[in-house]
Nucleic acid binder design. Structure first.
Length: 259
DNA sequence: ATGGTTGTTCCACAA
């Protein structure tokens, strides 16, 4: 099973890029973040024409997540947001079971700047995510958590670690929250396959020619439990979508699981 | 130290 994750920065202006991507990468499952569309306006038909059915959980203007599954794969046991989220909480999590694998699609709060309310919310959200996962699953289950974590786990995941030191996306507190998820029983699929690979990023700011200079960060991740890590044959970053006209500022991460 | 860009919505704000 091939699973991809991609923060599309609005799904509606990105449908053409999504079509190009799925034709090229041929994923079985695609987890999308920042769809920025309410469910009534989700482009289900366009996605159907690409050969996928979709579960989606979105809102107007901000946030929103969706999971696409190739026709023939059933989407089962859909969960929307965290168990302790209020009804009107930002829509940032969608989970389902596909082919016996629990797929959890997350759009972690950005956090804005260290010391702000949004930053505290980000840390609290990550702690609640871990509690939610731990309450539902054991590390021995087949669980995949992917999405835009808005955290660069280590210095090697940052183009200029000195400049980013202590900045949001790179603080010790954010890194500790992600490390805590790993300690529970998740493996960073990309880093496990490429332990020393530097310059492998998933997001580049739109400004200052950041992509051209490869001035990026690796903040989009696929975390998998050990039973899946033992069956993971490949984990890659596909830079092609970021090279297209009017791209998302993120590019997809792709993993292959022998399940 | 500042500014640069994009998407959505409404004339700002989040990223």
């Amino acid at each position: 099973m091939r699973v991809a994750t991609w923060n599309v920065n609005s799904i509606r202006p990105r449908l053409e890029h999504l079509a190009t991507f799925v034709k090229s990468a041929s994923p079985d499952v695609v987890c999308l973040q920042e769809t920025k569309v309410e469910d009534a306006k989700f482009p289900e038909e366009a996605i159907g024409e690409l050969g996928y059915r979709a579960a989606f959980f979105g809102q107007k203007t901000y946030n929103g997540v969706a999971i696409l599954a190739r026709y023939g794969l059933a989407i089962e046991d859909v969960q929307r947001n965290l168990a302790d989220d209020a009804e009107d909480a930002p829509r940032r999590l969608l989970a389902c079971t596909i082919d016996g694998v629990r797929i959890v699609d997350v759009y972690v709060p950005n956090g804005q700047a260290v010391g702000t309310q949004p930053f505290a919310y980000k840390l609290e959200w990550l702690a609640r995510l871990e509690r939610d996962l731990a309450s539902r699953h054991a590390p021995t289950d087949r669980v995949l958590v992917c999405g835009d974590f808005n955290v660069a786990p280590e210095a090697i995941d940052v183009h200029d670690p000195k400049r980013w030191e202590g900045q949001v996306l790179c603080t010790d507190a954010e890194r500790a929250a992600v490390a805590s998820l790993r300690a529970f029983g998740f493996v960073d699929a990309f880093r496990e396959k490429h332990p020393d690979l530097a310059g492998a990023f998933t997001w580049w700011d739109y400004r200052m020619g950041a992509f051209r200079r490869n001035a990026g960060l690796r903040i989009d991740h696929v975390l998998i439990t050990r039973p899946l890590a033992d069956r993971c044959t490949s984990a890659t970053i596909d830079r092609a979508p970021r090279t297209l006209e009017r791209p998302s500022d993120h590019t997809p991460v792709i993993v292959d699981l022998d399940v």
